[in-house]
Amino acid sequence: MNNLKIVCDSLSDVPIELINEYDIEVVPLTVIIDNKEYKDGIDITKEDFYKKLREENVYPKTSQATYTQFKEVFEKHIREGKDILYIAGSSTATGTYQSAVMAKNDLDGNIYTYDSQSFSYGIGVLVVRAAELAKEGKTATEIISELQILRDRSYLLFSVDTLEYLQKGGRISSTKATIANILNIKPILDVRDGLVAPIAQVRGKKNVISKMIDLIKDQCGDDLSDQVIYIGYSDDDKEKEKLIEVAKNELNPKDIKFFMVGTCIGSHSGPGVTGILTFKK
């Protein structure tokens, strides 16, 4: 029997069917909308979150998972005689990882922590791979070695429909946001050094996908027939369908799977965010 419990946080955007299939424990962050707190994925779904952004003109914030949350989760699995591997959202961007490390240090038991230095399904792909390897009977140390290779190969991009949320969150100045909106400039973001950062910008939404594909070809090559790629979506089905079509034609992936971009990225990007995860050779 597998004795290793895989734990992640709600930053990872792992689809619910995979959470259930691999019995993954998800520690929720808190989403704050109009001063009301919601446990991510428990008190509010991703669909409801984007609906609120569209209909209520609100600017959400996220709050890290706490020491107490991790202590309770870790204690539960230690009592069951389990080793624990916690795969975290980027420690550079959130204190959630530090909360887990503090809880680990106050407990006896075999608890391993791994900093993904990523977001959304950049974390999720590591969590699912860890769960697959745990099912095969691999140890936490063996799994972490594999995760390091997969993390270094991962290439994650997001497109943002509006700069309004990045500006409200202090990620860009109001002047830049105003100019960009006047000129209809759409930013493309990647994950670098544990942070989401602008890597390119285009004029007009119709040019976003072609630029994302160009960036992927530059980093990962133009024939991805040996890999499964992942497309992330929020509440913009048209953009998701366009990205699927272009990715199939331009990148020739072995398969395409999907994840819904969650409240962490969504709080900073707003609705209409689209993502794609591919892998360097």
Score class of each variant (00 low, 15 high):
A180I: 03
N57Q: 10
C264Y: 01
G266C: 13
K138M: 12
G232I: 11
K138C: 10
P198M: 03
S145V: 02
I24K: 04
I44E: 02
V14K: 02
Q167C: 14
V125T: 09
Y121M: 12
E146F: 01
R79G: 00
M1Y: 03
K168R: 11
A197T: 15
Y86V: 02
T278E: 10
A177N: 14
I87T: 08
Q227C: 13
A200V: 01
I87N: 05
F49D: 09
I185K: 03
I209Q: 06
G81S: 10
V73F: 11
Q69R: 14
T113E: 01
E72P: 00
I24V: 06
E80N: 10
C8N: 05
D218M: 07
T175S: 14
Q148S: 02
S90V: 08
G194T: 06
G221D: 14
I87V: 08
D43S: 10
R79Y: 06
K240M: 05
D152Q: 06
D223I: 08
I78A: 04
L147F: 03
I111G: 02
G262P: 07
Y67N: 15
Q201T: 09
T178V: 15
K281F: 00
K61H: 11
K71V: 02
K281Q: 04
D48K: 12
A140I: 04
L195N: 15
K76W: 09
A88N: 06
G266T: 09
S234C: 14
I24E: 03
N20P: 01
V58C: 06
V202H: 03
G266S: 09
I33F: 10
L133G: 07
S269E: 05
S159F: 01
G204H: 08
A88D: 02
G81M: 09
K168H: 13
G262K: 12
D222G: 14
V246A: 08
M212Y: 05
I265N: 01
F119V: 03
V228R: 11
D115Y: 13
M260E: 15
S118I: 00
I143F: 11
N35I: 12
N105H: 07
N57H: 10
